[in-house]
Design a binder for these strands. Structure first.
Lengths: 182, 182
DNA sequence: ATTTATAAAGAACAGTTGTTCAATAAAGGA
DNA sequence: TCCTTTATTGAACAACTGTTCTTTATAAAT
Protein backbone atom coordinates (compact mmCIF):
# COMPACT_ATOMS: atom_id res chain seq x y z
CA UNK A 1 0.00 0.00 0.00
CA UNK A 2 1.98 2.97 -1.23
CA UNK A 3 1.09 6.62 -0.87
CA UNK A 4 -0.86 8.57 -3.43
CA UNK A 5 1.61 10.62 -5.47
CA UNK A 6 -0.63 13.66 -5.22
CA UNK A 7 -0.34 13.60 -1.44
CA UNK A 8 3.40 13.24 -1.61
CA UNK A 9 3.62 16.19 -3.96
CA UNK A 10 1.50 18.55 -1.86
CA UNK A 11 3.16 17.70 1.44
CA UNK A 12 6.56 18.19 -0.16
CA UNK A 13 5.45 21.52 -1.55
CA UNK A 14 4.16 22.61 1.84
CA UNK A 15 7.31 21.50 3.59
CA UNK A 16 9.70 23.26 1.23
CA UNK A 17 7.54 26.38 1.31
CA UNK A 18 7.83 26.31 5.11
CA UNK A 19 11.61 26.02 4.93
CA UNK A 20 11.71 28.84 2.45
CA UNK A 21 9.59 31.11 4.62
CA UNK A 22 11.65 30.28 7.71
CA UNK A 23 14.56 32.10 6.09
CA UNK A 24 12.67 35.36 6.25
CA UNK A 25 10.59 35.16 9.45
CA UNK A 26 10.12 33.17 12.68
CA UNK A 27 7.82 30.17 12.73
CA UNK A 28 5.10 31.81 14.80
CA UNK A 29 4.66 34.59 12.24
CA UNK A 30 4.03 32.27 9.31
CA UNK A 31 0.32 32.06 8.53
CA UNK A 32 -1.36 29.13 6.85
CA UNK A 33 -2.65 31.43 4.12
CA UNK A 34 0.81 32.74 3.32
CA UNK A 35 2.29 29.27 3.38
CA UNK A 36 -0.32 27.91 0.98
CA UNK A 37 0.19 30.84 -1.34
CA UNK A 38 3.93 30.22 -1.60
CA UNK A 39 3.42 26.46 -1.85
CA UNK A 40 0.77 26.91 -4.51
CA UNK A 41 -1.52 24.64 -2.54
CA UNK A 42 -5.15 25.37 -1.78
CA UNK A 43 -5.74 26.29 1.84
CA UNK A 44 -8.44 23.66 2.22
CA UNK A 45 -5.94 21.07 1.03
CA UNK A 46 -3.56 22.06 3.82
CA UNK A 47 -6.19 21.13 6.39
CA UNK A 48 -6.56 17.72 4.73
CA UNK A 49 -3.08 16.84 5.97
CA UNK A 50 -2.17 19.13 8.86
CA UNK A 51 -4.05 21.05 11.48
CA UNK A 52 -1.62 23.93 11.99
CA UNK A 53 1.76 25.32 11.08
CA UNK A 54 3.09 23.76 14.27
CA UNK A 55 1.74 20.41 13.16
CA UNK A 56 3.52 20.74 9.83
CA UNK A 57 6.78 21.73 11.49
CA UNK A 58 6.36 18.84 13.89
CA UNK A 59 6.23 16.40 10.98
CA UNK A 60 9.29 17.98 9.48
CA UNK A 61 11.15 17.98 12.78
CA UNK A 62 10.29 14.32 13.17
CA UNK A 63 12.22 13.67 9.98
CA UNK A 64 15.17 15.55 11.42
CA UNK A 65 15.16 13.46 14.57
CA UNK A 66 15.29 10.31 12.45
CA UNK A 67 18.91 11.31 11.99
CA UNK A 68 19.22 10.60 15.70
CA UNK A 69 16.90 7.60 15.74
CA UNK A 70 18.48 5.57 12.95
CA UNK A 71 21.78 6.89 11.63
CA UNK A 72 23.18 6.77 15.16
CA UNK A 73 21.52 3.60 16.22
CA UNK A 74 23.95 0.97 15.01
CA UNK A 75 27.17 2.27 16.52
CA UNK A 76 25.53 2.32 19.92
CA UNK A 77 24.41 -1.29 19.66
CA UNK A 78 27.95 -2.29 18.91
CA UNK A 79 29.00 -1.15 22.38
CA UNK A 80 26.96 -3.81 24.17
CA UNK A 81 25.04 -1.22 26.18
CA UNK A 82 27.83 -0.90 28.73
CA UNK A 83 27.48 2.22 30.85
CA UNK A 84 31.10 3.14 30.16
CA UNK A 85 30.22 3.26 26.49
CA UNK A 86 27.40 5.72 26.89
CA UNK A 87 29.94 8.35 26.01
CA UNK A 88 30.19 7.84 22.22
CA UNK A 89 26.44 7.55 22.16
CA UNK A 90 25.96 10.94 23.79
CA UNK A 91 28.58 12.56 21.61
CA UNK A 92 26.24 11.70 18.80
CA UNK A 93 23.35 13.51 20.46
CA UNK A 94 25.27 16.76 20.81
CA UNK A 95 26.69 16.35 17.34
CA UNK A 96 23.20 15.85 15.94
CA UNK A 97 21.91 18.98 17.70
CA UNK A 98 24.79 21.04 16.36
CA UNK A 99 24.22 19.67 12.87
CA UNK A 100 20.62 20.89 12.95
CA UNK A 101 21.23 23.87 15.21
CA UNK A 102 19.08 26.07 13.03
CA UNK A 103 16.04 23.96 13.87
CA UNK A 104 16.89 23.41 17.51
CA UNK A 105 16.80 27.16 17.97
CA UNK A 106 13.20 26.98 16.81
CA UNK A 107 12.42 23.92 18.94
CA UNK A 108 13.61 25.60 22.15
CA UNK A 109 11.99 28.96 21.44
CA UNK A 110 9.75 30.24 24.23
CA UNK A 111 6.76 30.28 21.91
CA UNK A 112 7.32 26.81 20.46
CA UNK A 113 4.89 24.12 21.62
CA UNK A 114 6.25 21.25 23.73
CA UNK A 115 5.41 18.75 20.99
CA UNK A 116 8.84 19.14 19.40
CA UNK A 117 10.53 18.88 22.77
CA UNK A 118 8.78 15.58 23.49
CA UNK A 119 9.89 14.21 20.15
CA UNK A 120 13.53 14.65 21.17
CA UNK A 121 12.88 13.62 24.76
CA UNK A 122 11.28 10.32 23.77
CA UNK A 123 14.23 9.30 21.62
CA UNK A 124 16.90 10.01 24.22
CA UNK A 125 14.76 8.46 26.92
CA UNK A 126 14.29 5.26 24.87
CA UNK A 127 18.05 4.98 24.33
CA UNK A 128 18.76 5.37 28.03
CA UNK A 129 16.01 3.02 29.10
CA UNK A 130 17.70 0.25 27.15
CA UNK A 131 20.87 0.63 29.19
CA UNK A 132 19.08 0.73 32.58
CA UNK A 133 16.35 -1.80 33.33
CA UNK A 134 18.43 -4.36 35.23
CA UNK A 135 18.63 -3.72 38.93
CA UNK A 136 15.81 -1.24 39.54
CA UNK A 137 12.06 -1.60 39.90
CA UNK A 138 10.25 -1.01 36.62
CA UNK A 139 8.67 2.34 37.43
CA UNK A 140 11.90 3.50 39.09
CA UNK A 141 13.88 2.82 35.95
CA UNK A 142 11.30 4.68 33.88
CA UNK A 143 11.73 7.66 36.16
CA UNK A 144 15.50 7.32 35.96
CA UNK A 145 15.33 7.30 32.18
CA UNK A 146 13.25 10.48 32.23
CA UNK A 147 15.63 12.00 34.78
CA UNK A 148 18.73 11.30 32.72
CA UNK A 149 17.18 12.07 29.34
CA UNK A 150 15.91 15.43 30.48
CA UNK A 151 19.20 16.21 32.21
CA UNK A 152 20.91 15.94 28.84
CA UNK A 153 18.27 18.15 27.29
CA UNK A 154 18.96 20.59 30.11
CA UNK A 155 22.50 20.90 28.81
CA UNK A 156 21.15 21.38 25.30
CA UNK A 157 18.86 24.16 26.55
CA UNK A 158 21.86 25.87 28.11
CA UNK A 159 23.82 25.34 24.90
CA UNK A 160 21.13 26.78 22.65
CA UNK A 161 20.66 29.71 25.04
CA UNK A 162 24.38 30.46 24.66
CA UNK A 163 24.06 30.19 20.90
CA UNK A 164 26.29 27.09 20.71
CA UNK A 165 29.38 28.88 22.00
CA UNK A 166 30.82 25.66 23.48
CA UNK A 167 32.12 22.83 21.30
CA UNK A 168 30.60 19.36 21.07
CA UNK A 169 33.71 18.05 22.82
CA UNK A 170 33.27 20.42 25.75
CA UNK A 171 29.63 19.38 26.08
CA UNK A 172 30.60 15.76 26.05
CA UNK A 173 33.34 16.21 28.64
CA UNK A 174 30.95 17.99 30.95
CA UNK A 175 28.39 15.25 30.56
CA UNK A 176 30.97 12.61 31.47
CA UNK A 177 31.92 14.71 34.48
CA UNK A 178 28.33 15.22 35.61
CA UNK A 179 27.30 11.57 35.30
CA UNK A 180 30.41 10.37 37.11
CA UNK A 181 29.76 11.55 40.64
CA UNK A 182 26.18 12.74 41.03
CA UNK B 1 4.02 54.78 42.32
CA UNK B 2 1.12 52.37 42.71
CA UNK B 3 -0.89 50.74 39.97
CA UNK B 4 -3.97 52.26 38.42
CA UNK B 5 -7.01 50.60 39.97
CA UNK B 6 -8.64 50.25 36.55
CA UNK B 7 -5.74 48.13 35.35
CA UNK B 8 -5.91 45.97 38.44
CA UNK B 9 -9.62 45.46 37.94
CA UNK B 10 -9.42 44.47 34.28
CA UNK B 11 -6.49 42.12 34.69
CA UNK B 12 -8.25 40.47 37.61
CA UNK B 13 -11.38 40.10 35.54
CA UNK B 14 -9.45 38.57 32.67
CA UNK B 15 -7.61 36.20 34.96
CA UNK B 16 -10.70 34.93 36.74
CA UNK B 17 -12.53 34.59 33.43
CA UNK B 18 -9.65 32.44 32.21
CA UNK B 19 -9.83 30.23 35.28
CA UNK B 20 -13.57 29.94 34.83
CA UNK B 21 -13.26 28.93 31.17
CA UNK B 22 -10.52 26.42 31.97
CA UNK B 23 -13.12 24.38 33.84
CA UNK B 24 -14.99 23.75 30.62
CA UNK B 25 -12.31 23.55 27.92
CA UNK B 26 -8.56 23.22 27.35
CA UNK B 27 -6.40 26.34 27.17
CA UNK B 28 -5.74 26.13 23.44
CA UNK B 29 -9.46 26.25 22.65
CA UNK B 30 -10.11 29.47 24.54
CA UNK B 31 -10.32 32.42 22.17
CA UNK B 32 -9.55 35.99 23.11
CA UNK B 33 -13.03 37.02 21.98
CA UNK B 34 -14.72 34.48 24.21
CA UNK B 35 -12.51 35.36 27.14
CA UNK B 36 -13.26 39.06 26.82
CA UNK B 37 -16.96 38.36 26.56
CA UNK B 38 -17.01 36.42 29.81
CA UNK B 39 -14.70 38.91 31.51
CA UNK B 40 -16.83 41.82 30.31
CA UNK B 41 -13.71 43.52 29.04
CA UNK B 42 -13.35 45.10 25.63
CA UNK B 43 -11.20 43.08 23.29
CA UNK B 44 -8.99 46.05 22.51
CA UNK B 45 -8.37 46.45 26.22
CA UNK B 46 -7.07 42.88 26.37
CA UNK B 47 -4.34 43.76 23.88
CA UNK B 48 -3.35 46.72 26.03
CA UNK B 49 -2.08 44.27 28.67
CA UNK B 50 -1.46 40.91 27.00
CA UNK B 51 -0.59 39.73 23.55
CA UNK B 52 -2.26 36.32 23.64
CA UNK B 53 -4.09 33.81 25.81
CA UNK B 54 -0.76 32.12 26.37
CA UNK B 55 0.68 35.39 27.57
CA UNK B 56 -2.16 35.82 30.06
CA UNK B 57 -1.76 32.28 31.33
CA UNK B 58 1.96 32.85 31.59
CA UNK B 59 1.38 35.78 33.92
CA UNK B 60 -1.00 33.71 36.00
CA UNK B 61 1.40 30.77 36.08
CA UNK B 62 4.14 33.11 37.21
CA UNK B 63 2.03 33.89 40.27
CA UNK B 64 1.72 30.18 40.93
CA UNK B 65 5.45 29.68 40.77
CA UNK B 66 5.90 32.40 43.36
CA UNK B 67 4.69 29.74 45.74
CA UNK B 68 7.94 27.98 44.88
CA UNK B 69 10.06 31.10 44.68
CA UNK B 70 9.21 32.65 48.02
CA UNK B 71 7.18 30.47 50.33
CA UNK B 72 9.84 27.77 50.08
CA UNK B 73 12.81 30.04 50.07
CA UNK B 74 13.46 30.56 53.76
CA UNK B 75 13.54 26.95 54.93
CA UNK B 76 16.17 26.21 52.32
CA UNK B 77 18.43 29.01 53.43
CA UNK B 78 18.32 27.68 56.96
CA UNK B 79 20.11 24.53 55.83
CA UNK B 80 23.34 26.35 54.95
CA UNK B 81 23.27 25.12 51.35
CA UNK B 82 24.80 21.76 52.28
CA UNK B 83 24.37 19.21 49.54
CA UNK B 84 23.01 16.67 52.02
CA UNK B 85 20.21 19.11 52.75
CA UNK B 86 19.08 19.43 49.18
CA UNK B 87 16.54 16.79 50.08
CA UNK B 88 14.04 18.93 52.04
CA UNK B 89 14.37 21.55 49.37
CA UNK B 90 13.43 19.13 46.60
CA UNK B 91 10.56 17.67 48.58
CA UNK B 92 9.12 21.13 48.41
CA UNK B 93 9.35 21.19 44.61
CA UNK B 94 7.38 17.99 44.19
CA UNK B 95 4.95 19.12 46.84
CA UNK B 96 4.44 22.38 45.03
CA UNK B 97 3.79 20.62 41.72
CA UNK B 98 1.25 18.32 43.33
CA UNK B 99 -0.45 21.26 45.00
CA UNK B 100 -0.97 22.91 41.62
CA UNK B 101 -1.25 19.70 39.61
CA UNK B 102 -4.20 21.04 37.69
CA UNK B 103 -2.00 23.75 36.19
CA UNK B 104 1.04 21.59 35.67
CA UNK B 105 -1.05 19.35 33.46
CA UNK B 106 -1.59 22.42 31.30
CA UNK B 107 2.05 23.47 31.47
CA UNK B 108 3.29 20.10 30.21
CA UNK B 109 0.68 19.70 27.52
CA UNK B 110 2.06 19.00 24.04
CA UNK B 111 0.48 22.16 22.68
CA UNK B 112 1.62 24.44 25.51
CA UNK B 113 4.40 26.88 24.65
CA UNK B 114 7.78 26.45 26.32
CA UNK B 115 7.40 29.79 28.09
CA UNK B 116 5.75 28.17 31.09
CA UNK B 117 8.37 25.45 31.15
CA UNK B 118 11.16 27.99 31.29
CA UNK B 119 9.47 29.76 34.17
CA UNK B 120 9.74 26.62 36.29
CA UNK B 121 13.16 25.73 34.92
CA UNK B 122 14.66 29.09 35.83
CA UNK B 123 13.54 28.84 39.44
CA UNK B 124 14.88 25.35 40.05
CA UNK B 125 18.06 26.19 38.17
CA UNK B 126 18.63 29.30 40.31
CA UNK B 127 18.20 27.28 43.50
CA UNK B 128 20.68 24.67 42.38
CA UNK B 129 23.18 27.19 41.11
CA UNK B 130 23.43 28.61 44.63
CA UNK B 131 24.54 25.28 45.98
CA UNK B 132 27.13 24.61 43.25
CA UNK B 133 29.53 27.37 42.18
CA UNK B 134 32.49 26.44 44.35
CA UNK B 135 34.86 24.01 42.71
CA UNK B 136 33.86 24.18 39.06
CA UNK B 137 34.58 26.66 36.28
CA UNK B 138 31.80 29.22 35.90
CA UNK B 139 30.31 27.99 32.63
CA UNK B 140 30.65 24.39 33.81
CA UNK B 141 28.59 25.11 36.91
CA UNK B 142 25.96 26.84 34.81
CA UNK B 143 25.72 23.74 32.66
CA UNK B 144 25.57 21.57 35.76
CA UNK B 145 22.73 23.67 37.15
CA UNK B 146 20.82 23.26 33.88
CA UNK B 147 21.62 19.56 33.88
CA UNK B 148 20.32 18.98 37.39
CA UNK B 149 17.36 21.34 37.16
CA UNK B 150 16.10 19.76 33.99
CA UNK B 151 16.71 16.27 35.38
CA UNK B 152 14.23 17.06 38.13
CA UNK B 153 11.78 18.41 35.60
CA UNK B 154 12.26 15.12 33.73
CA UNK B 155 10.87 13.35 36.75
CA UNK B 156 7.99 15.80 36.85
CA UNK B 157 7.25 15.14 33.18
CA UNK B 158 7.14 11.42 33.93
CA UNK B 159 4.94 12.11 36.97
CA UNK B 160 2.47 14.28 35.07
CA UNK B 161 2.36 11.73 32.25
CA UNK B 162 1.38 9.08 34.79
CA UNK B 163 -1.27 11.43 36.20
CA UNK B 164 0.50 11.74 39.58
CA UNK B 165 0.11 8.07 40.47
CA UNK B 166 3.25 8.11 42.64
CA UNK B 167 3.39 9.94 45.97
CA UNK B 168 5.56 12.95 46.73
CA UNK B 169 7.58 10.70 49.08
CA UNK B 170 8.25 8.18 46.34
CA UNK B 171 9.39 10.93 44.01
CA UNK B 172 11.70 12.30 46.65
CA UNK B 173 13.18 8.91 47.46
CA UNK B 174 13.88 8.29 43.81
CA UNK B 175 15.56 11.67 43.46
CA UNK B 176 17.82 10.93 46.43
CA UNK B 177 18.66 7.60 44.85
CA UNK B 178 19.38 9.09 41.42
CA UNK B 179 21.59 11.92 42.69
CA UNK B 180 23.55 9.61 44.99
CA UNK B 181 25.50 7.53 42.47
CA UNK B 182 25.23 9.08 39.07
C1' DA C 1 -6.88 2.51 -22.21
C1' DT C 2 -10.78 2.99 -19.70
C1' DT C 3 -12.88 3.10 -15.40
C1' DT C 4 -12.96 4.18 -10.62
C1' DA C 5 -11.54 6.35 -6.55
C1' DT C 6 -10.07 10.20 -4.36
C1' DA C 7 -7.04 14.30 -3.85
C1' DA C 8 -7.00 19.09 -4.92
C1' DA C 9 -9.08 23.37 -6.29
C1' DG C 10 -12.21 27.02 -5.82
C1' DA C 11 -15.57 29.50 -3.56
C1' DA C 12 -18.14 30.66 0.20
C1' DC C 13 -19.29 31.08 5.34
C1' DA C 14 -19.21 32.84 10.10
C1' DG C 15 -16.02 33.68 13.58
C1' DT C 16 -11.35 35.28 15.28
C1' DT C 17 -7.37 38.23 15.17
C1' DG C 18 -4.66 42.32 15.56
C1' DT C 19 -4.84 47.04 14.96
C1' DT C 20 -6.39 51.90 14.92
C1' DC C 21 -9.35 55.78 16.24
C1' DA C 22 -12.34 59.11 18.47
C1' DA C 23 -15.34 59.36 22.41
C1' DT C 24 -16.07 58.35 27.16
C1' DA C 25 -15.16 57.08 31.82
C1' DA C 26 -12.62 56.76 35.77
C1' DA C 27 -8.56 57.16 38.54
C1' DG C 28 -4.82 60.02 40.75
C1' DG C 29 -2.73 64.48 42.03
C1' DA C 30 -3.01 69.32 43.55
C1' DT D 1 -13.13 69.36 44.97
C1' DC D 2 -11.58 70.34 40.43
C1' DC D 3 -8.29 69.30 36.99
C1' DT D 4 -5.37 66.38 34.46
C1' DT D 5 -4.06 62.11 32.91
C1' DT D 6 -4.87 57.86 31.03
C1' DA D 7 -7.49 53.40 30.87
C1' DT D 8 -11.48 51.63 28.69
C1' DT D 9 -14.96 51.44 25.35
C1' DG D 10 -17.10 50.78 20.86
C1' DA D 11 -16.71 50.66 16.20
C1' DA D 12 -14.49 49.67 12.15
C1' DC D 13 -10.87 47.43 9.16
C1' DA D 14 -8.38 43.89 6.46
C1' DA D 15 -6.42 39.59 7.12
C1' DC D 16 -6.54 34.89 8.85
C1' DT D 17 -8.98 30.66 10.47
C1' DG D 18 -11.52 26.52 10.23
C1' DT D 19 -15.00 24.35 7.83
C1' DT D 20 -18.14 22.81 4.14
C1' DC D 21 -19.52 22.12 -0.52
C1' DT D 22 -19.34 21.23 -5.46
C1' DT D 23 -16.49 20.74 -9.38
C1' DT D 24 -12.27 19.38 -11.56
C1' DA D 25 -8.08 16.87 -12.07
C1' DT D 26 -5.14 13.11 -11.48
C1' DA D 27 -3.51 8.86 -9.62
C1' DA D 28 -4.39 3.80 -9.13
C1' DA D 29 -6.60 -0.43 -10.45
C1' DT D 30 -8.49 -3.49 -13.92
Amino acid sequence: MKKDLRVVKTTENLQSALLHLLETKPLEKISISELCKTAKVNRGTFYLHFQSIDDLFSHYFHEITEDLRFAYYEPYHLTNYAIENVEPHMVRIFHHVEKFSRFYKIVFNRKAPLMYYYDLFDIIRAYLLESIEEQLAVSDSEYLASYQANAIIGMIIEWVGRDFEQSVEQLNNMLIEFTKSR
